[in-house]
Design a protein around this nucleic acid. Structure first.
Lengths: 170, 170
DNA sequence: GGGAACACGTGATAC
DNA sequence: TGTATCACGTGTTCC
């Protein structure tokens, strides 16, 4: 038995400019058709029923992972190729670019603030200082705290790496 | 023939706190052993030789993609689960957080700069202004120029993609 | 034709 | 127990 792969007979391309992964995304039509035979009267009983259930579950998992990867491709602005590995690679490079840019901008902000506070030594409280002075500690907390709290050491790894980045750059 | 999956007999866990994906990462030992039999004298000729070659090539591709995914997991600081789909999902969320933070930091920089230049209207040339005014163009170039030179500014490209994403997904 | 990339079904394993 | 995730080999398609 060849585990029927004649799905590719009617492969119309998923309407995108790059168009790999046509097979998986167009095979959703037979998902429901095959999801109804796993609990029906199979010729050899519960063994193949479990196999069929595993089959359809695996199909859903595979589709979900491909959707995630497709969403990742949309989140990254510069994509070199549409290959799966290239998508992940470009995402990694883009994340690193964003992280470097973040530290750069924070350094610039810190410099501007120190310059202003230094200048305000003889220029005190003439404009709206309190909102700007407390902005760095309080303003951006909601974007990092809406995630679930974790106890794993990965966050420690991250904090230490960020501190390490601060220690080296600044 | 069951396409021997007794590799999992000697599955020692890849030393990580989370430890899925043990199978693929510990199966590198038999890669070389099986990569030598695809061109040997197969009993049925070129058909199974092509299949074996496809097998070892697919193994390498799978391993490479897993390595990329592992690198992505290292690039993202906050990981909720070690599941493959969760890794990609967390990477997407992290990218969006970084993008929002970038625009926010740029807004703050613009605010600070406008404030400074406004303040300098009646405060001209009293301290070391020229080094500060040219700092944005010259000082941090060593951080950003060790990558390949990008022709278009990253800000413009990112803002447009963000607007597009807001239009489609949200 | 040969290599690269993909989807598929399946057995195995962890929770 | 059942469910979810994974790696594997294989057939297929595209260049």
């Amino acid at each position: 038995m060849e585990s029927f792969q004649n799905i590719s007979e009617y492969q119309n391309y998923w309407e995108m400019p790059g168009m790999f992964w046509n097979d998986e995304l167009t095979s959703w039509e037979m998902d429901q058709a095959s999801s109804q035979i796993y609990d029906s009267s199979s010729p050899d009983g519960a063994a193949s029923a479990s196999a069929s259930r595993n089959t359809v579950s695996e199909r859903n998992r595979r589709k979900k992972l491909n959707d995630k990867l497709y969403a990742l491709r949309e989140a990254v602005p510069r994509i070199s190729k549409l290959d799966k590995a290239s998508i992940i690679k470009d995402a990694i490079d883009y994340i690193q670019d964003l992280q470097e840019q973040e530290t750069r901008l924070q350094a610039e902000i810190m410099e501007l603030e120190s310059e202003r506070s230094e200048k305000d030594k003889g220029y005190e409280f003439e404009r709206e200082l309190p909102v700007l002075l407390t902005s760095k500690k309080t303003r951006y907390d909601h974007i990092s705290d809406h995630r679930e709290p974790r106890s794993d050491p990965i966050e420690v790894h991250q904090v230490s790496s960020k501190q390490w980045r601060y220690a080296t750059i600044f």
